[in-house]
Design a binder for these strands. Structure first.
Lengths: 197, 197
DNA sequence: CGCTAAATAGACAGGTCTGTCTACCTTAAG
DNA sequence: CTTAAGGTAGACAGACCTGTCTATTTAGCG
């Protein structure tokens, strides 16, 4: 029995290569626009290897997004810990990091926002994965806002979140990395204005 | 000669029905996810009628977005002219209108942002159509910002734009219409803080 | 060596997609 | 009545899509 095997280990070089390749191509052209065969050809991996690791294309997308979320989380923690303890400095560092991202040659917007755009059904696993990831950023912004002198840190954090997402949209739509600095100035102004007088 | 006809008139009931149906379905499920046949079945129109009016699916998408842009522009002008002449009132009216939109049962984010997400290639006609439409909003915000007491109306207008786009993203991702009011308060705070002291 | 798990190539089914073509119908104007 | 434009139905080509299956090969390991 069990002639064909499971290959369900979470640690596998082929699996990781598939996730990296899949994310890169999805990010370049979109989720529906990129077919399985394109990813397999680019990665040089057989089709059955993919379907041994993932049940479906949707599952591959979710895993690729999850992998990307881990990368982002690590980078963000590095950015924050490189800045001083001053919450305003940390806010500045966050938006400066956005600017660096916007200037990378293959910047193509936010993979998560674009995933929501293609999978707007809230019941979709892709949609759920995106919301989960976005919530982490919002939580981090909220804990940052709590270090600021405001009586409504939650609202302030959300407003900063709106500026951050808006900056990504603008940078992507108009290829305008300067959106990061405008968002940063806006965020700092809101943080200062929110001070209880 | 010319046994088959052109049917290229810009005013045609079938053409308009196609555009309305196409936009509704694209907005519901996405551009790649909705096929021509689905639109034709929903509209009750023959395939050749579509291809007599539009050269390709891409051209249909562009036309549907253009039609939607006209609607939005009219609605926005109505919103602005219903408010007082005070630019802060006009700003408030804009974000209140956003809230109303977010609360509509079939709200599904911004059709233009989602189009950019699916057609990230700047050379794509869809991408170009979206940028053109978004620029109109930015120009309107800029002319509004010029009525405010600030020495950098362009930056202020862009920051308000970031809040507006961010609010749409948040409202769509988390089904949170309250994003509109947060964005509005943020925009008003920025407008007041930008006053030359 | 021998066993096992992982990966491979490639064919394949079944469906969907865009776009084209033909032949026919309806309607309205001259 | 005649003519022409717009619309219709349906078949069709050709490409692409996801997912499955089989038979074979490779690689690690006791």
């Amino acid at each position: 029995m069990s002639s064909t095997s499971a290959a369900r280990s979470r640690k596998s070089p082929k699996r990781d290569l598939l996730l990296e390749t899949a994310f890169r191509l999805f990010y370049l052209s979109g989720y529906h626009a990129v077919g399985i065969d394109t990813i397999l050809a680019e990665a040089g991996v057989a089709k059955m290897t993919l379907y041994n690791h993932f049940k479906s294309k949707d599952e591959l997308i979710v895993a690729a997004l999850q992998r990307r979320a881990d990368e982002i989380l690590s980078a963000r923690e590095a950015t924050l810990s490189a800045a001083s303890d001053d919450p305003l400095d940390q806010l500045s560092a966050l938006f400066d990091a956005y600017e660096g991202w916007f200037k990378t040659p293959d910047f193509n917007g936010c993979a998560f926002i674009r995933a929501i755009a293609e999978y707007p059904d809230q019941a979709s696993p892709v949609n759920q994965a995106v919301r989960q990831q976005k919530q982490i950023l919002i939580d981090q912004l909220e804990s940052l806002a709590r270090k600021l002198p405001t009586d409504d840190p939650k609202s302030l954090a959300t407003q900063i979140y709106l500026l951050a997402e808006g900056a990504i949209i603008r940078a992507h739509t108009f290829r305008d990395p300067a959106a990061a600095q405008l968002a940063k100035e806006g965020a700092l102004a809101l943080a200062k204005a929110a001070r209880r007088p």
